[in-house]
Design a protein around this nucleic acid. Structure first.
Lengths: 342, 342
DNA sequence: TGCTTTTATCGAACCGGTTCGATACACATG
DNA sequence: CATGTGTATCGAACCGGTTCGATAAAAGCA
């Protein structure tokens, strides 16, 4: 049988409540008494029971991590790494993380995650896009919630997001610095919050460099930011006669699509076309030429989200929005444009 | 405040213990009383508190899932999907799953997962290879443990493994059925437990078809089952004058290696060489020609592991070994051999 | 010296379940 | 009719923590 707080109390010759006070750093405790209790804890290898603790102060010590299954078992371990960041940080806060996946394209009325129904979490992290319906239901529960990498509109909870605007600005500025002036923006789904922000960053960089934007240079396709849609969008633009010397892509996946389409169109990379991605997925370093991109620190994203959540749980307060920084990674897909033939 | 069992009891005009009896399906309860209690539970939207429950029967309702970080954030979401299978199945058993990653190449004394130190799990699943030291320490804790997809030797806990032998047998039989007689086995690390079993299955299939095995047709390379090693091994064999019409590979990665090497050697696929992989990773469907392979149902692997664990927890008993089935996926990399020129 | 404030510890009550002996009625049996 | 057995429910004690008012010694102050 595991030792209880009463065992510790007996060994240290104090009342259980005194041990509890030491454990929780409350009330006045004589230094000598504290030492005696701590040594008793050591001797017995005592760990407080989470169930008992939870029962007494009606907290669970758990936080829930919700992610769409479609995002999670994706080949690119983006949210996996976000989760690892969360779990690692949670260790410092004495919290357990309950990971659950929900059906991303929920047609049928999907049940809520158990830990919410059973009120068994002190807070919830929602990673990536999830169905609006779920989001609403979670909000109704009044559980402290933080959205990670998804800017659900009309959702007044805290958010931890990638600094998409700054990233796209840096990506575009990098191409401008290389001398490019005809820079396209190729995306998949046009309305995706991240895409919108990245497009804005692209515009800002152009404005700063006093390069006029152009409708023809901004193309989108379909309702996801996928390789296929990237490919289609770029092909359409190119065939319609718009020939940029560089492309800022909504993310790495669309960049791969552009890469494929460009090869199909007999363009030589990166000489004929410079390419910037966004996310820095594993594949980015493996394609030919390796993709220059904007790196997002996934573990840090998760760790930050957890800290924000803990803050809301412990200190309360209103909804906040935090942006985690990005980093430009220069690989082989970007170079100065060919000399213009006049 | 959430309703308690006493609220339910009051509403149904019974004692709390009677509600508990209904909840746990114990003792004699009059049908009419049960109905009254259930309706009260409904009306109040009552869910029993896990903490209180855990405290009373000193169980946590949690199970731990341990995986090496190197395996987990790998691009191929193998263990991610195993985990999803576990979590999904756990819902039916009213268990929460605590996922934690450990350092795969732990040189330094890494701390045990928290949930073990705090005795906060009723059982543990260990997915994939983890450091021997950790394995030993977990065993010492006497927590019910099940190894998933790792046959840790001298570890007398239950195991749930892939049926490697059967898979390789099926792969080889498929090639034999197509008419191949000169079938090679190409692997990476020769001593890897999975590779050993798969080689055995290959031998069995040959024996059944009364085809004599040959040393020249079995090649290995290096100490991992990687694309590079697959490529090297095949090239070496081919250049030494051994020219099979088909190859069974230790896994998909080595198969990709063989594919690359074969193209390098100006072989036309699949006409000149049929190829079988093993695992059915995401990439298998994307290469050219798409790889015929042996599919492992990762979610099922996880679900099975959880069921085995639950069984050990609830019913106890000795260590068992379970094999989960595999499925032959025929894609474009296999076809009958060319007519032999006599 | 007498009185207030600070420091230090105790112990009973409580959190929300589960367990199990006590109790009591209904019905069958000899 | 006495006795035994199966059915049905109750309620007190318990699981292992936390909380907080009570108590008292030590320190500060007039």
């Amino acid at each position: 049988m595991a030792p209880t707080i009463r065992d510790v109390a007996k060994l240290a010759n104090v009342a259980p409540s005194t041990v509890s006070a030491v454990l929780n750093d409350k009330r006045y405790i004589k230094a000598e008494t504290r030492a005696r209790i701590l040594s008793a804890i050591q001797k017995l290898d005592y760990t407080p029971s989470r169930s008992a603790r939870g029962l007494a102060n009606r907290t669970s010590g758990n936080i829930g991590f919700i992610v769409a299954n479609t995002h999670f078992s994706h080949a690119e371990p983006f949210y996996t790494r976000v989760f690892l960041g969360v779990e690692f940080e949670a260790r410092h806060h004495d919290l357990y993380v309950l990971l659950t996946s929900v059906n991303g394209k929920a047609q049928k009325p999907e049940p809520m995650p158990r830990f919410l129904l059973e009120q068994n979490v002190d807070g919830v992290l929602i990673a990536g896009r999830v169905p609006d319906k779920l989001l609403k239901e979670v909000m109704q529960r009044k559980v402290p919630t933080v959205l990670v990498d998804y800017d659900g509109k009309a959702c007044d909870c805290s958010k931890v997001l990638i600094d998409n605007e700054e990233g796209a600005r840096a990506a575009t500025a990098h191409l401008l610095d290389l001398g490019h002036r005809d820079i396209a923006f190729v995306g998949g789904e046009k309305d995706h919050p991240s895409a919108v922000e990245r497009l804005r960053g692209y515009h800002q960089a152009l404005a700063t460099a006093k390069v006029a934007p152009s409708e023809e240079l901004e193309v989108f396709e379909g309702d996801t930011m996928s390789t296929e849609n990237g490919s289609k969008a770029f092909t359409r633009m190119w065939k319609s006669g718009t020939h940029p010397t560089a492309v800022v892509c909504a993310n790495d996946a669309t960049a791969f699509g552009v890469q494929l389409a460009a090869k199909e169109l007999k363009l030589k990379l990166p000489e004929d076309l410079s390419l910037m991605g966004f996310d820095d997925v594993v594949m980015s370093g493996l394609v030919d030429p390796p993709l220059s991109t904007i790196r997002v620190d996934k573990e840090e994203l998760g760790a930050t989200a957890l800290r924000v959540l803990v803050d809301r749980i412990r200190r309360g307060g209103g909804a906040t929005t935090t942006r985690v920084g990005v980093e430009l990674i220069q690989r082989g897909s970007t170079m100065p444009p060919r000399e213009k033939k006049n």
